[in-house]
Simulated scan of single mutants.
Amino acid sequence: QTAKINQGNIALKRVVESIANGDSHVPFRDSKLTMLLQDSFEDDKSKILMILCASPDPKEIHKTISTLEYGAKAKCIVRGPHTPVKEEDSSSTVILGSRIAAMDEFIMKLQMENKLREKERNEAHKKLMKKEEEIAELRAKMETAPASEEEINLKVNERTRLLRQELEKKLQECQRMTNDFVELERKRMEERILQQQEEVEILRKRLEEIELQLHCTSKKE
Rank of each mutant, 00 (worst) to 15 (best):
residue 1 Q to S: 14
residue 3 A to Y: 10
residue 5 I to Q: 15
residue 6 N to W: 06
residue 9 N to F: 07
residue 12 L to T: 00
residue 13 K to T: 03
residue 19 I to M: 06
residue 21 N to R: 01
residue 21 N to V: 00
residue 23 D to A: 15
residue 26 V to E: 12
residue 27 P to H: 09
residue 28 F to S: 03
residue 30 D to T: 11
residue 30 D to M: 14
residue 30 D to E: 15
residue 33 L to R: 05
residue 34 T to C: 13
residue 36 L to A: 15
residue 37 L to E: 08
residue 42 E to R: 14
residue 43 D to A: 10
residue 44 D to P: 13
residue 44 D to W: 05
residue 46 S to V: 04
residue 55 S to N: 06
residue 57 D to K: 01
residue 57 D to R: 02
residue 57 D to T: 00
residue 57 D to L: 01
residue 60 E to C: 05
residue 63 K to S: 03
residue 65 I to T: 03
residue 71 G to K: 03
residue 71 G to R: 01
residue 72 A to E: 09
residue 74 A to G: 09
residue 74 A to R: 03
residue 79 R to G: 05
residue 81 P to T: 11
residue 83 T to R: 15
residue 83 T to D: 13
residue 86 K to W: 00
residue 89 D to V: 04
residue 89 D to I: 01
residue 90 S to Q: 11
residue 93 T to G: 11
residue 95 I to L: 13
residue 96 L to W: 03
residue 96 L to Y: 03
residue 98 S to D: 13
residue 103 M to D: 03
residue 106 F to D: 15
residue 108 M to V: 05
residue 108 M to P: 00
residue 112 M to L: 08
residue 115 K to R: 15
residue 122 N to S: 11
residue 125 H to D: 02
residue 127 K to V: 15
residue 127 K to H: 14
residue 128 L to E: 08
residue 131 K to I: 04
residue 131 K to E: 11
residue 132 E to P: 04
residue 134 E to W: 06
residue 135 I to L: 12
residue 136 A to W: 12
residue 137 E to P: 00
residue 141 K to G: 02
residue 141 K to M: 06
residue 146 P to I: 13
residue 149 E to D: 09
residue 151 E to L: 10
residue 156 V to Q: 13
residue 158 E to C: 08
residue 164 R to S: 14
residue 166 E to G: 02
residue 166 E to M: 08
residue 167 L to F: 04
residue 167 L to H: 06
residue 168 E to T: 04
residue 168 E to C: 04
residue 169 K to A: 13
residue 170 K to L: 14
residue 170 K to I: 13
residue 177 M to P: 02
residue 178 T to P: 06
residue 182 V to W: 08
residue 183 E to L: 08
residue 184 L to F: 12
residue 188 R to Y: 02
residue 188 R to K: 10
residue 193 I to T: 04
residue 194 L to V: 03
residue 195 Q to E: 15
residue 201 E to F: 01
residue 201 E to T: 01
residue 203 L to N: 07
residue 204 R to I: 02
residue 208 E to Q: 11
residue 208 E to I: 06
residue 211 E to D: 13
residue 211 E to W: 04
residue 212 L to I: 00
residue 216 C to M: 11
residue 221 E to P: 01
